[in-house]
């Protein structure tokens, strides 16, 4: 099997996220990590090739510093990586991101499966996997927490999480799936994996390599634009329910008023 895992470098989950002067996310003054949800995607891919043999290629779009996230993915066991890095990409929206990733996947060719995390912890749009599948013209199964592939039959069967439960979905390969949290337990890199990661091939591509013009990507090419932003207001004081023998009822009233029950 040839599996491509899309990964993104994001600010550390607990870091305070700020916008810079261009109203895009400040990725310079924070610690950056491999998007946690993508680790589930990668782990799933690694388990699949352990069971069915094949290769895992990591695909990432991001600034130079994204190399760190790519190295982590390689140290976990991916075979090689493609890093799309170009100053023109800064500020790309989800639609443009999916365009760039689609061009890269067309260049890679003959993949059986594309896996990504179901969302990145910074932008949290969750739409890139669906847009990417649409651009590639392949089946998409998003929000997956369990998947089985049959490489010989070129099919997959997945549990797709919904608000009410889950759907069991079958698709033909090649296909795109997006992984939810707790799909598996991502391995941590082994010592030998870390030492080997530097020797693994990382191909760096510019947007010109993908046949894209600068004005088709980045802030200028984006379909959406951030006009304004405000910090989240500080959390307001909670409601204190005094228990004078009616605590339970008061609590239920409070929950009902918030439509929790």
């Amino acid at each position: 099997m040839k599996i491509v895992v899309c990964v993104k470098q994001v600010p550390d989950t607990w870091a305070e996220k700020k916008l810079d002067a261009s109203k895009t996310l400040d990725r310079v003054s924070v610690d950056n990590i491999l998007n946690e949800m993508d680790e589930f995607a990668l782990e799933e891919a690694l388990q699949m090739i352990a069971a069915h043999s094949g290769t895992v290629t990591v695909l990432s779009m991001g600034p130079d510093s994204a190399t760190e996230a790519i190295r982590k993915a390689l140290s976990m066991g991916a075979d090689g990586a493609i890093h799309i890095v170009d100053d023109a990409l800064k500020g790309s929206c989800a639609a443009v991101t999916s365009l760039v990733l689609a061009k890269a996947l067309e260049r890679i060719g003959d993949y059986d499966l594309v896996i990504s995390g179901s969302e990145a912890s910074d932008a949290r749009t969750s739409v890139v996997p669906a847009m990417l599948a649409e651009r590639l013209g392949i089946p998409q199964v998003t929000f997956v927490n369990k998947v089985e592939v049959d490489p010989a039959a070129k099919t997959l069967k997945a549990n797709r999480i919904t608000d009410d439960g889950y759907q069991v979905v079958e698709a033909s390969l090649p296909a795109m799936i997006s992984a939810v949290e707790k799909m598996n337990e991502p391995r941590y890199p082994s010592f030998k994996g870390i030492m080997a990661a530097k020797k693994k091939p990382v191909e760096t591509l510019s947007i010109a390599d993908l046949g894209l013009e600068a004005d088709a990507v980045g802030l200028s090419g984006s379909w959406t634009k951030v006009n304004d932003s405000a910090d989240r207001p500080p959390r307001s004081a909670g409601t204190i329910v005094e228990d004078e023998g009616n605590g339970g009822a008061a609590l239920v009233d409070f929950l009902a008023s918030k439509k929790f029950v």
Partner: peptide, 17 residues
């Protein structure tokens, strides 16, 4: 080095888990 930071990170992840 990058590798040394990765070693620290992996061990820390493992121990925190």
């Amino acid at each position: 080095s990058d590798e040394e930071r990765a070693i620290r990170d992996a061990v820390r992840t493992c121990a925190l888990r």
